[in-house]
Amino acid sequence: MSTTRPKAPSKLPATLGMLGMLALLILCAVMLERANWDRLPGVPGEVLGYLAKMAEGVASDPRAEPTGRGVAPGDTYGTWWWIAFDKMIDSIAMAWIGTVIGASLSFPLAFLAANNTAPGPLRFAIRGLFNGIRAIPDLVFAILVMLPIFGLTPTAGAMALGVNSIGTLGKLTLESIEAIDPGPMEAVRASGATWLQTMRVAVVPQMLPETMAFWLYRFEVNIRASAVLGVLGAGGIGKVLSDVIGHRLWERAGITLLVVIVVTVIVDQISASVRHRIIHGSSSSRRGRADEPEPLPVTVTA
């Protein structure tokens, strides 16, 4: 004779959750007007076709002169490679300057905003500033403030990225300030140090590596974001992409996209290995804070 079997716990919440998600999905799909869902099945085939054309462009001899629409006289495939590369450097420069601006403005502000270091009630205002900036897409700074002042220039793009970076970098920096070990700060204060001395001696050394890793991560994000500003007219690779793809010049699009991918991947790799070095130090430092995980980019809102 068997004993009574305990009943399995209800699966209802999970099932309801799944059904809710499904309902939301269907609802959104239905609400999406003029979506032309019937075109969806054809998309993979079409995209593959375009990819093939892109590959043709990439595979062409750089000295050959392309035929067809959108070819300036005297242009070779090599010219296209070169333009893409040149504009990609523009975008990277824009992203770098934006990151430098964001880092150098957010760094001091974060000390005035962190709960454990803020000298005054100013911190609520600064926190509000960080959160406010984070909620606004970078494109908005560009079109409402930077483009009117700086015109259609990479400077406008760099400034927009810079202002936008203050939000995320500020928030991450103040979080790493708040995560420091308070002991050294207390010890330094107990020795009669001023606020500034305490920050420099006890706080900065503890949070700088993480913060620099965030700067690098933000640089990677900004490279991508600069493409958007390029589309708006700030120049750089975004402008080329929008011209080339917008005019359906697939061969040239293939070349341009490949340059973007390769350069971005290389920069990402360099940045990631520098970040790793900063956080974990060189192999000799076993102790210290080596047990800390790399900052999860999930907290970094673009």
Binding site: R39, G238, I245, L257, I261, D268
Partner: peptide
């Protein structure tokens, strides 16, 4: 995956808009 991540969202949007016609579906894709 790292190739996919190296392109910004706007690049995908440009591609799908050019491949299909403007509208929300290219945005979703």
């Amino acid at each position: 995956l790292s190739a996919v991540r190296s392109l910004p969202d706007i690049a995908y949007a440009l591609i799908f808009v050019a491949a299909m016609s403007p509208g929300p579906l290219p945005g979703v894709l």
